[in-house]
Nucleic acid binder design. Structure first.
Lengths: 330, 330
DNA sequence: GATGCCATTGTACACGTGTGCAATGCCTGC
DNA sequence: GCAGGCATTGCACACGTGTACAATGGCATC
């Protein structure tokens, strides 16, 4: 019944050593950078390894090296294209530096704990968090285990926990300026009440700028910054001619909601945030603030690597630059 | 300079055993399901473990257990919201069954090889592929190592490689019927020429159904099934009144392209495929064929687990059911 | 030719865990 | 009281790898 091909044991460095006629240590050294092996030995080992289909077992290696090169990526809100693009860029950045991302979806706040607990079992080399920020106690446990954590666009400072945060001050300011320059006089910002740390900072910066410039501005709170809430918020937005939506995903809802209510989009200025691909689509053609998540991913991984070398270092915060992308809506 | 908190060694089962006053084997058994430990011992171990902050090292465990519970997820095309939703669902399904997904972005066909090669080093418990299908030779190597592979919506049959495929026959047929029922008389299908296996199957089923029903139908080839190509294809679509776009992502481009050309969308019937969230947005309100990627993810993980138990089993193919979602465009 | 240096090699231990095996002790049934 | 069964425990080995240490040998220098 079987193909006669016995379910052959996993091929190990012993097998390679035997076939190549060298010691097992020589095999190990061949696959270890900067180890001392003669060219002839290396050649023999490579030949034998290829013939046997040998691959170094990284998990066994991690045991002795005390580094797994696995990095936990705790993510949430992937229905927003920005978030999925973000984790895509993070994965690329990690893989590019020879780390392996373990993707852990954590849509409920409570599941963040469970996911991060799991990560401690895999003694990961680090953790990137784009979901809700983990509680301080948990972060301290990671610090005690010398596992670096980097939070992306999340919460307040936690000892030994680095952060990458979009430049929300600039974003809020430019949003206000752009709307005013476009001729808006009655401004409003639409933003979720509790959820997103970075979105609230944008809102505050926006309102502060308006105050400083003596412009009329109001906050229109919603529950979450998504399409549905944006659509619903359009009703309340009818009295304004300049809208700052704290992310593009919600801005599309606002635009569709305004259109559904029969408003002329040409007469109302709208600025979004993130510059997700859909913002460039003809149906929206949305003026927005570009948050370059490729750069942001690089920053995060860079911080992670820095902390691997110096776990007890004081926490650092890196800001991701924001630029305006002018399109039809402002 | 340091906080006096010595960078304490990783706490191991030895430490827990010592503190609890039991043997290390007792500790191991406490954390192994179905192992024989007395309630008192278990209690003592749990107490000591909690005090020390001990966690079982899964990587060390995997060495002896020969199963890492890591599963490689090779993904591509995450700019399409369907693909990102797909990997989100896959990740959830895996985590729900106590596997950990390693996310490997492989946008170029060549990088699929590199990524999957990496996976062999981490001796993963399995691999899910949603990017380009890996070459047969590589798949056979995985089979030789008894590593299950499941391809999702990809390529032709490969020995010992299971597949989950969307029910493209039904999709193509329903697309044709829906357009005809809506009153279309000159039909066309827009589809990428080489890229997607499943998309081409949809196209063929669509054309076959049209032939059978005696309806006029034509294929409009594009390069890739994305927004930009859809937008460009709108020019060629001007002569038809019934369009089947093989995915929603491209359908949006077609719609925007038609609008930009001044065509009245109300007079042209359009059917997409996937039912991504954006299809329900007011700007598009697209009639489409729902490909339930949560169910699909379950199917894929189920196949994976089945093959873990029986690696040499003949390959199986599972089909994901498709249902029509009627909205404004047809 | 003797000496010192250096590259290379093999031996042996370490990493943190699961489990077969034999030993122990308790309990049940006669 | 005694045999037998059963749950529990500890010892020791295994998993696959990296590397410190000592040993070896080649080569250049005196």
């Amino acid at each position: 019944m079987s193909e006669g091909d016995n379910p052959r044991r996993k091929v190990t460095s012993f097998d390679v050593a035997e076939r190549a006629g060298v010691s097992r240590a020589a095999v190990s050294r061949t696959f270890t950078p900067n180890a001392s092996v003669s060219p002839e030995t290396r050649e023999k080992v490579h030949k034998a390894a290829k013939e046997l289909g040998y691959r170094v077992n990284y998990l066994a290696r991690s045991l002795i090296n005390r580094r797994s090169d696995l990095v936990g990526v705790v993510a949430a809100g992937m229905d927003n294209p920005f978030r999925s693009q973000q984790i895509h860029e993070i994965a690329k950045a990690l893989v590019g530096r020879n780390f392996r991302p373990i993707l852990l979806p954590a849509d409920e706040a409570e599941s963040v704990n469970r996911m991060m607990d799991q990560l401690l079992h895999y003694n990961v080399s680090g953790v990137l968090v784009t979901s809700d920020a983990p509680p301080t106690a948990l972060c301290e446990e990671f610090a005690a285990h010398a596992v670096p954590i980097v939070l992306i666009n999340k919460g307040d400072a936690i000892p030994h926990v680095d952060r990458v945060i979009s430049d929300d001050e600039t974003a809020g300011r430019i949003a206000a300026q752009t709307l005013l320059e476009a001729g808006a006089t009655r401004l409003a910002v639409i933003c979720g009440a509790e959820v997103s740390y970075t979105a609230r900072r944008r809102q505050e910066a926006f309102l502060a700028t308006c105050r400083k410039l003596g412009a009329s501005a109001q906050a229109l709170p919603v529950v979450i910054n998504d399409y549905g809430n944006g659509f619903a918020a359009a009703a309340a937005a009818a009295d304004f001619d300049g809208l700052f939506c704290v992310n593009d995903y919600m801005a599309f809802g606002v635009i569709d909601g305004l259109r559904a209510a029969g408003r002329d989009i040409g007469k109302i200025r709208i600025v979004g945030h993130d510059d997700i691909p859909q913002a460039a689509w003809a149906a929206y053609d949305l003026t927005t603030l570009r948050q370059p998540c490729d750069i942001q991913a690089e920053q995060a991984v860079e911080l992670l690597m820095g902390r691997m070398d110096a776990p007890r270092m004081a926490e650092r915060t890196e800001f991701t630059p924001v630029t305006v992308v002018r399109r039809a809506t402002a």
